[in-house]
Nucleic acid binder design. Structure first.
Lengths: 242, 242
DNA sequence: TTCCCCCTCCCCGGAACTGGCGAGGGCCGG
DNA sequence: CCGGCCCTCGCCAGTTCCGGGGAGGGGGAA
């Protein structure tokens, strides 16, 4: 419990101080677990392109900065791989064949990462997506033993970190996920799968003008600049599914 | 491993048979765990509005059918509550104040559910959302003891069920995602966050015509009908991150 | 009951997007 | 070394989308 738990919405000085303190605690926890598990690295971080980054772990800060600066988020095969899976992913299973991926891999090795990795995908409300990763340098068999023996603990550890992080960064979305109306959801979904406005209107058996009202309404609720933006937000917040 | 593991893409008779068999196994597993935990019910089910329902557990089939028929999916406070949380939710914490919710609660009690419940939200790729729930009839203190002692196991159990269910219903296997070029990724990302073509072109310091080539190329690679469709596909395949 | 949201329909002008045509240089793997 | 992919730029015409109005009926919540 924080010292200013009573009023989480002020965003004031004390709260910021408290948050910084709790961040440091979480950082210490990650180092602690790394040592207990006897691995080289242990990391938790959100996956999101916009500024609101958050992460903690034992990576070299220089590597973290480099990762951000060079936009490795868009190249890292771990991200893409985990995005398509529910269960944890061993880095060996991923596709490292592309040129950019190999260059990224070399760079990561050069910054102190081990050759073995195991990442747990985490998904939260509003389309939040995060990764919990353990990293080490060893041969394949040793690593496979480690991951299969600690799989359950790693999942629970991932949950622990994600929960702490969510508590730390409470209102990541200024708009508290205003729900879309059924019609709006239908409209956005049909747009997301490639229909034009005219097609959507026909599919919903409404006039194109009415459809436009839905799109505009959804765009407003989602704080989106245009239709593409609105569909992207609806998708990434889990409001629609394709 | 199933009897027709060798060819998962046929969708043929044998595979269907195998799947039915594995479903029954999972059903048996849920009854087994219910007895081990000494609780009244244990249930896993997807939450999705469209027809593709799936679930297994120990509820009375009559209650399940009633739940579907009466559209309780839309008023069940458990659904609403879990949608907004990452961590497991005790039913006591939920908002049962609306009239519809109270009627639902009475109906559930009448169909053999206990007064206590604890639900673990589960999120998978492509916006999949599922719940793993344990239910029992006892007083609050007993239930709180139970949940706090078994929290970790329940989370892992939830993961187990979700993973089995995902294996059972492979759904639409994402087509081998043809990779986008770095420039295409940048373009799609900037479009996804609300920039117009002109803005994207300026941000990338290229002419708008060049940008159009990227968009068209990405659209082609993704098999998309238009820009919105392309952005949606890139998002749901994890090729870009917003 | 009253208010608010949801659903439905309509006009218009300007801005943005789409499709099809063309061009050239650079870098990599076979 | 050649083919293929990536990056860059250009024009034109047609289609679609956007933003700003207005208007009415129905249903659920306070």
């Amino acid at each position: 419990m924080g010292v200013v738990e009573s009023n989480p919405s002020t965003g004031g000085f004390l709260e910021e101080l408290d948050r910084a303190e709790r961040r440091e605690q979480l950082q210490a926890v990650s180092e602690n677990f790394r040592d207990k598990l006897r691995i080289r690295h242990l990391i938790y971080h959100w996956v999101s392109a916009d500024g609101e980054q958050y992460g903690c772990g034992t990576y070299d800060p220089a590597w973290v900065q480099r990762y951000i600066d060079k936009g490795y988020l868009r190249i890292d095969p771990v991200i893409q791989g985990c995005y398509q899976h529910f269960h944890p992913v061993d880095w060996k299973q991923l596709d490292w064949s592309s040129r950019a991926a190999r260059a990224f891999h070399r760079d990561a090795m050069a910054h102190g990462l081990g050759n073995q990795g195991y990442s747990v995908p985490l998904r939260g409300p509003n389309g939040q997506f995060a990764l919990f990763t353990v990293n080490h340098a060893c041969d394949d068999d040793t690593w496979d033993d480690f991951t299969s023996q600690n799989r359950g603990d790693l999942i629970l550890l991932a949950h622990y970190f994600n929960q702490k992080a969510l508590e730390l960064e409470p209102g990541r979305q200024p708009e508290p996920a205003q729900p879309l109306s059924p019609r709006e959801i239908e409209a956005m979904t049909l747009l997301a799968v490639g229909n034009s406005r005219a097609q959507v209107a026909e599919a919903l058996s409404i006039s194109e003008h009415t459809l436009r009202v839905y799109i505009e309404s959804a765009r407003f609720k989602l704080g989106a600049m245009n239709t593409t933006h609105a569909v992207a937000r609806a998708l990434s917040r889990g409001l629609i599914v394709v």
